[in-house]
Design a protein around this nucleic acid. Structure first.
Length: 482
DNA sequence: ATGTAC
């Protein structure tokens, strides 16, 4: 359903000019192949051009190749705002603040895993709380949770839930500066303090994956990261649970009320925003950072539980099994970054909603060990089709160093439930060598591979456009989900 | 995504 006004800039870049809609301050750019652009719902074109109307937006309103309709902004949306006269918008970050991915390696080969796969997946399913409303296995007081809001993953490491090196291999070393718990409602704390180390539901999952020799695209980089053929790896996807959700809800309400006071009008209530420099804008920014830190800590606690389960099932310590983390990266955030805009270095608030930061080689803010290769980008595909590790590249400058975050839905959850049967899907996957455990069959059906775009198409588009570089593809063999 | 509705 592409609009006739859509201009093809290159085989993988499409533009809606400012003339497309009254009020657009910048053009909108969608990264997609012909095939992917035709798979995008009309909501993408509508929303990406709405975002182009927001005050202070710089260069373009972007949508990544996995883009689809979302709350206000498209999922796959990127919008960099001028920090002097621009806005901050919860819809540009997502309800699940710091939803993100973590990738961990093992020294195990697929043959070593096979006899224990069922036991491993069952034990992960029993140990990592999975599903809506599930609570943490750890008793964490509200005063400890306050420390988590401020210190993120660092709190976990200090309390024995992980390894020091995990911090170095986490975006922001697992703790973003400037989190202020006084800006977070009691209700959010009430929902969040017992959610550390829980997976959640929907498309949140934990997967055991295998490296196929033929799916290593950049052997040199893969080897330098510690990846080898037939290796077993662990990937998971989750965020800040009810905690971040409540913070987003709280501030959307505040912003809706504040907008007229600042003279801001938006084409869609879901684009509620406030000037970044305003009191409420800064309050949300500081509260959102608490959710960013909570989410890093959540994934750290899951990583800890994963190591425990592996050690238990294989009867060898996690250190002996070399369960080292590759990286942990968010795909739902707004962050202050310095970028070159028409030759001038400017401080921007980069909203990435279902989009992954992909800093190129030598850039500040990526771990020393990845300075040469570029920042690792972890892409979760559907549970049937596989996932990717990419790296950031120099030419990522065009999108403020942002790329895709996953496959992107082509079918609504409702539609998927109608079209697929969870039980059948589980049996078919089992036959294909993928053992899944899920809280509900309906939930499983929503995540069917065919409900998503083809992950290879999405990665090809991102690669062709020069916004990230494929290193390796992983194939799923075990999966737990909410 | 979410104690799937304020």
């Amino acid at each position: 359903m592409r609009p006739p006004e859509l201009i093809k800039i290159s085989p993988v870049i499409w533009e809606l000019p400012v003339s497309y809609k009254t009020g657009m301050r910048v053009p909108a750019r969608i990264y997609a192949t012909e095939k992917l652009i035709d798979q995008m719902d009309s909501g993408v074109f509508d929303q990406v051009s709405n975002v182009a109307m927001l005050p202070g937006i710089v260069n373009y309103s972007f949508c990544m190749p996995d883009g689809h309709w979302g709350y206000g902004f498209p999922i796959g949306g990127v919008a960099a705002m001028d920090t002097d006269d621009g806005v901050i918008s919860p819809g540009g970050i997502g309800f699940d603040i710091n939803c993100g991915m973590r990738l961990m390696l093992t020294s195990l080969t697929y043959d070593e895993l096979k006899p224990k796969l069922h036991k491993l997946v069952d034990k992960l399913f029993n140990n990592v709380p999975t599903g809506v409303g599930e609570k943490s296995r750890y008793a964490i007081s509200k005063s400890d949770f306050r420390k988590v809001m401020i210190n993120g993953s660092r709190w976990c490491i200090e309390n024995g839930f992980g390894w020091q090196e995990d911090l170095l291999r986490t975006e922001e070393t697992g703790c973003i500066d400037g989190a202020d718990p006084s800006k977070v409602s009691d209700k959010a704390v009430e929902r969040g303090y017992h959610q550390l180390g829980t997976l959640g539901s929907g498309n949140h999952y934990l997967e055991i994956q295998v490296v196929k020799r033929e799916s290593i695209f950049d052997a040199k980089t893969a080897e330098s990261i510690g990846i080898f053929p037939d290796q077993v790896v662990i990937m998971f996807h989750c965020g800040s649970r009810g905690f971040g959700h409540q913070i987003a809800t709280d501030y959307l309400r505040v912003f809706l009320k504040a907008m007229p006071e600042y003279g801001i009008s938006v084409p869609d209530r879901e684009l509620a925003c406030a000037p970044f420099r305003s009191g409420v804008g800064q309050d949300y920014f500081s509260a959102m950072k608490c959710a960013i830190n909570m989410s890093f800590a959540n994934r750290q606690m899951i990583a800890h539980q994963v190591r425990e389960v592996f050690a238990d099932v294989f009867g060898v310590s996690a250190i002996r099994l070399s369960i080292h983390q590759v990286y942990d990266i968010a795909h739902n955030t707004a962050k202050l970054e310095y970028h070159d805009v028409n030759g001038v270095r400017k401080r921007l608030l980069v909203h990435r909603k279902g989009s992954t930061r992909a800093f190129g080689p030598d850039m500040e803010g990526i771990p020393q060990e990845y300075k040469k290769t570029g920042q690792p980008v972890i892409i979760g595909g559907s549970m049937e089709t596989g996932s990717y590790l990419l790296s950031g590249v120099k030419s990522g400058k065009q999108t403020f160093y942002s790329t895709t975050h996953g496959s992107g839905r082509v079918m609504s959850r409702k539609q998927a439930r109608k079209q697929f049967r969870g039980k059948e899907l589980q049996m078919r996957m089992e036959k294909e060598g993928i053992y899944t455990r899920s809280v509900s069959y309906g939930g499983l059906a929503e995540e069917a591979g065919k409900a998503y775009k083809n992950i290879d198409d999405v990665i090809d588009a991102a690669s062709m456009a020069g916004i990230s570089h494929p290193i390796v593809k992983f194939l799923p063999v075990g999966n737990i989900k909410g």
